[in-house]
Each structure stands twice: as C-alpha cells, then as structure tokens.
Design a protein around this nucleic acid. Structure first.
Length: 410
RNA sequence: GGGGGAGUACCCAAGUGGCCAAAGGGGGCAGACUGUAAAUCUGUUAGCUCAGCUUUCGAUGGUUCGAAUCCGUCCUCCCCCA
C-alpha cells in the first residue's frame, strides 16, 4: 500500500462531489484499510453505466487496499428511493426484486475480487425484511427529525408532486443499513452517487448518535453530459452492462459517438488509463479527437465486456465505418431461405429483422432516404429484393448513417 | 371525513359537441452540413392492405346523426380544511 492516497486519485479523476469530512476521510484512507459500502437498488435486471461509475470507484478503492461491500437492496427495493424522482416508483414484486438481485450479484462479481473476504456482497433484505416496526421506530426513528428531513434536497421535488409515507421511510432504511454494516463489518464509510447525499448523511448521523463513533460519507458526480443531461441513455433506454440488453458493439458505438466535450471526463471516470494519457487524449481538437474517442470506446468496452469483445466491436466498427476488413463480426441476424423468399419486399424484411418497429416507420424511412441495401439507397417503398442482392448469402442493410445490420440467409 | 382540482399520444402541455389522429414544446427518427461529434436548418413522429380504413384522449356505461369535449358510476393523483 505504498501507492498514492486513493482519495487524491478519485479527486484528480473527477469522481468526487461531496465529502462529509474531507481531511479526516483523506487521512483515514491514507492510513488504514477501510471497509466501505455502496448500495445498489435492484430496479432492473441489469446494472447500467450509471451504476458503473460506482463500480469504478469500488475498483479503485479495492486496488488501494480497502475493502468494498456491495450492498444489494433487496429490502430497500421493496420501498423505492424517492430521491430526485418526480414520480412515485412502481412497486415491484418480491419475485422481481429477487431476480434482479441475482443479476446484480453476477455482474458485480466480474468487477470486484470477492475472494477471501477482500470484498463482500450483502443483501439488506437479510436485516430489513424481518424488522419489527415498533422496535425499529424506537431504535432508529427517534433519531430523525421530520422537520429536517422535509428540508432535505432529495425530497424537494416530491413535496410538490406528492410523497407517500412509504417512500418517506426510505431514508431511515438506508441509514439503518449503514448502521447495520457498521456493527457487523465495521464499515465506516458510505459512498454513492451525488443524489444519495441526503440518505448518506442520514446514516452518518445515525452512527454518530447511536454508536458515538465517527462515520463518513462521500458522493460522486453523476455521469452527465456537458449539457447537464444524464448520460448513458440510448433510444432503447439505458446503456446496460448486460450484453444481451446492450450488445458490446452498440456499447462501443455509444462511446465512439460521444460529445467532444465529454471525452476527457469519460476517459477519467470510465477507464484506468493514467491521467497523463487522459490529459493528452482529452486535449485533442477537431478531427483528432476521434482518436481519443476510439481509445475511450475500446477501453470502456474492455473493462465491461472483456478484451476479446472489445476487439470485436472495434473491428466491426472499423469494417463498417473505416476501411477495415469486411469479415469482421458486424451486427446482424440470420434468416432462413423461406423467410427471405417471403419477405422480399424491403419493408417486410426490415420489419422481420426488427430494424423498424412498424411498417409505417419503414415507409417514412424510405421516403426520407434513410434505408440502404448494400450501400445503395432504396428509393421506392415497394422495393423488392432479388437473389442478386445476396452477396455471399448475405446483404448489408443500413438505416440512417450509423445503424448497420447484416442479414445472412442460411 | 368535508370542499376544490386534475387525469390527453414517449414526456410536458393545448384542446370543452363536428373543421381532432388531436396545437405547441421536449425527446426520438430521417435528410442536409460534418469528424461515425456538437450546433444549426429541413422533414417526420398511432396502426394497417396508406389519397382509404381501423384503434386512441384514466376505466366503464349512457345522451347525440356525431363526443377527447355533455351526463352517470368507478379508479388514481394533487391542493385546502379536519
């Protein structure tokens, strides 16, 4: 542990948003192995890039010799965090939550070393679900001032739109998590996205009051674009870590196409490249910054999907957009001879391979000149494909400028 | 529990008997320009067998030649009072 203080690393890379006690936390992280935790609520069956920032932090921390606890919110998920949300969350069934928890576990174990207790994975359902209401109120509830809670930033938007008592309790539950982890594993530090600030403070205060011991909290910047919007959104919704929900190719392409202004930030937050390299790549201008985007896309894809998938995605992108070899694995689908014969009409085929959600959309696309077959623009909405369109039993369809889809007939 | 208000397409939001598949904005998609970027401009954005038809304005049942718009019931949410 002769490395730099991880606190400085996190700060330099731009993760830090708020810290409860900056100097103390820095000293602590520099002097001993600290057990810390980050919670993940199982709101979907895969983590997405928003979560990934937190995972990156955990990796940095673990590399620096600290012990991460990944907390999966099997208990808090039953309530739903109202922080920053404008609408009430849909209540999820217990089955869904369990299913999502397992998916999270699987994904997290790819990024952190859980062997020999170097990192822990716990589920707060283990202690939250069997709580006795009155006991909980007496032990935890007494320490919370409703007056103060109401002034918390995280409830602000909900005080205008409505907030149920169920969700109002979320803060207490998360605070109790911290206390439980403190007691069980001596966790002294809770990390989280900046939207978790109020919830984290709740836990820090609770431990200080109940145990009379110091506890700390620290939040990280959310992944936003330079325009301030949440990043990691695609037309299909979030950018998922699950390759079945967002393919490595799509994933790679997302980062390849990111705004110039966001390149440097993403390199720092989402890759392990040394900061000198981040600085160098991030300061490239105009066309040159495309090189930085390629590095970014490759590196992020590598961390999440592995080197092999990253190379494939890179090769496919090169083949489609550059001058690379044509035999790379480009995205596409395989159909049978019969399906091809039955869908010779271009719109039918587009619909079959799910490149368009409806045939009306297909007509519009063609009328606007957005569909290409083997690099030739399709002009008529009743265009019919022939066998001679098949080159090597396949044809390349392009939708718009960037969506490539190779159809192979078997 | 009493009183008031609201539920409209992916989101916000106009529309209060026919001219409404429904203004406007956001977002999405496509075209132009580019650097597989951003900004900008243009078009488009319920479905289908597309100059025609079908389904949509919280749910359901009515009134009417005709309803997102009127009436009844129900559901959900918000505000004020208790």
């Amino acid at each position: 542990m002769n490395k730099r203080n991880v606190f400085d690393v996190l700060k330099e890379r731009g993760y830090l948003a708020q810290v409860t006690h900056e100097d103390e936390v820095r000293d602590l992280l520099g002097s001993e192995s600290v057990t810390f935790y980050i919670g993940f609520d199982p709101t979907a069956d895969s983590l997405h890039v928003g979560h990934f920032i937190q995972v990156m932090v955990m990796m940095h921390m673990q590399q620096a010799g600290h012990r991460p606890i990944a907390l999966i919110g099997g208990g808090t998920g039953m309530v739903g965090d109202p922080s920053g949300k404008t609408d009430m969350r849909k209540m999820m069934t217990k089955e869904t939550i369990d299913h999502n928890c397992r998916a999270f576990q699987k994904q997290l174990s790819r990024f952190l070393d859980f062997s020999e207790g170097q990192a822990l994975l716990v589920n707060n359902g283990d202690w939250l679900l069997d709580l006795n209401y009155v006991e909980f109120l007496r032990e935890v509830g007494v320490h919370f001032s409703v007056n103060r809670m109401l002034t918390a930033e995280c409830f602000k938007s909900r005080l205008e739109k409505g907030l149920s008592f169920l969700e109002f309790n979320y803060m207490l539950m998360q605070s109790y998590d911290f206390l439980a982890l403190y007691r069980k594993y001596q966790a002294k530090l809770q990390l989280g996205g900046d939207d978790q600030w109020s919830n984290i403070l709740g836990g820090v205060d609770l431990i200080r009051r109940v145990e009379g011991s110091p506890a700390y909290g620290m939040t990280f910047n959310l992944l936003t674009t330079s325009a301030g919007k949440k990043m990691g959104k695609t037309e299909a919704g979030a950018l998922w870590l699950d390759p079945d929900k967002t393919s490595p190719y799509e994933f790679y392409q997302y980062w390849r196409n990111i705004d110039d202004d966001d390149v440097k930030k993403c390199l720092a937050l989402l890759t392990f490249l040394p900061m000198e390299e981040v600085e160098r790549l991030g300061s490239l201008k105009d066309e040159k910054i495309n090189d930085a985007k390629k590095v970014l896309a490759y590196e992020v894809t590598k961390v999440i999907h592995g080197e092999e998938e990253a190379k494939k995605a890179e090769a496919a992108s090169q083949a489609l957009f550059g001058s690379g070899g044509a035999d790379a694995e480009v995205p596409g689908s395989t159909i049978t001879e019969k399906e091809f014969q039955d869908h010779r009409n271009i719109i039918d085929l587009l619909h079959l391979i799910k490149l368009i959600p409806s045939k009306g959309e297909g007509r519009r696309l063609i009328q606007q000149g957005g569909i290409y077959v083997n690099d030739e623009r399709i002009e008529a909405i009743d265009h019919t494909l022939t066998d001679s369109d098949l080159k090597d039993r396949s044809l390349m369809i392009r939708k718009g400028k960037k969506v490539y889809h190779k159809v192979t007939v078997e």
